[in-house]
């Protein structure tokens, strides 16, 4: 009876025949897929049919999801987004290097370097304690206010500096947690071979620490990609600012939706990839 689904009369099962368990699991899988499909479809249908019944739907559709405005502004938005990409591209390496340097400052043990350690602590406390936009305002408006000559009054320079200050503080903390996560026995092994503390850090601890925190740092850099838009407050016309310009021009909010789409196309795959790396690492650790 149990073997009803198996090839007839096979006492020794043929190689390809699924086991009882496989048959059962396949059935369970089919059933849960069916249920998931039905429930998703009903939610989507409800949204599609119910939302347009809302009294303000017509107006919302006109001002946020206007196909004509979308087509007219999207190429311009993409073009403006290039500026986001560029700011990101030069900020990211600066942040990585500064973050590493700050992490190492915080980790120094020599008494002569105590001021460095103090500096590292103050740095990470201050810049993690402030809203990004506030740092951008203070530095982006404050420093050029000193009346510096061109090109030193450029908002690109000071905006970038603001991003580097804030994000390197976070990166430093992430790297430091990576350094802490390396087991003491690795340092013992290095010390027992006569390696100096410096070499131990450089060749044994840091390479492992940095590898361990790649996913966490990726999440930071995804956040950075979004926060580049904040520089628009001090001048640069990147995609968010450009969307604002189009909004005024067309008296329509659709450009903002277009800008949002551009961000999502980039950030969703990146977030997925970071999660994938994180899961892979967690699995490797157990």
């Amino acid at each position: 009876m149990d073997d009803a689904s198996l090839p007839d009369g096979a006492s020794g099962r043929t190689v390809a025949a699924p086991t009882r368990r496989e048959v059962y699991e396949a059935e369970v899988r089919r059933r849960s897929n069916r249920i998931a499909l039905i429930s998703t479809a009903s939610v989507v249908l409800a949204i599609v049919f119910l939302v347009p019944l809302a009294p303000g739907w017509e107006a919302v559709q006109r001002s946020f999801f206007n196909g004509r405005v979308f087509a007219a502004t999207f190429p311009g938005l993409l073009n403006a987004f290039l500026l986001n990409v560029m700011i990101f591209a030069w900020s990211a390496p600066l942040i990585a290097v500064t973050g590493l340097a700050i992490a190492l400052c915080r980790d120094t043990r020599a008494p002569a370097l105590f001021p460095l350690r103090l500096f590292g602590i103050a740095y990470t406390d201050i810049f993690r304690g402030l809203p990004v936009v506030l740092v951008i305002y203070i530095i982006g408006f404050g420093v050029p206010g000193l009346g510096l000559p061109r090109p030193w009054n450029s908002p690109y320079i000071w905006g970038t500096l603001a991003l580097v200050l804030v994000y390197s503080a976070y990166v430093a903390e992430v790297i430091r947690s990576g350094i802490d996560s390396i087991h003491q026995s690795q340092r013992s092994a290095a010390a027992s071979l006569g390696l100096s503390e410096r070499d131990t850090m450089r060749f044994v601890v840091l390479p492992q620490a940095i590898r361990n925190v790649v996913p966490a740092n990726m999440n930071l850099f995804i956040a950075l990609q979004k926060d580049v838009a904040l520089l628009s407050f001090i001048g640069p016309v990147e995609v968010f600012r450009q969307a604002g310009v189009y909004k005024s021009l067309y008296a329509n909010f659709t450009p903002y939706v277009g800008a949002a789409l551009i961000f999502l196309v980039l950030t969703i795959p990146a977030t997925r990839y970071a999660d994938y790396l994180m899961n892979k690492q967690n699995r490797a650790r157990t």
């Binding site: 026995s185 690795q186 013992s188 092994a189 290095a190 010390a191 027992s192 071979l193 006569g194 060749f203 044994v204 492992q208």
Partner: peptide, 15 residues
């Protein structure tokens, strides 16, 4: 430590 080497129970190789 260069004169006196040690080997640990848990190997402690650099992975």
């Amino acid at each position: 430590r260069q004169q006196i080497g040690i080997v640990f129970q848990s190997y402690n190789l650099f992975p």
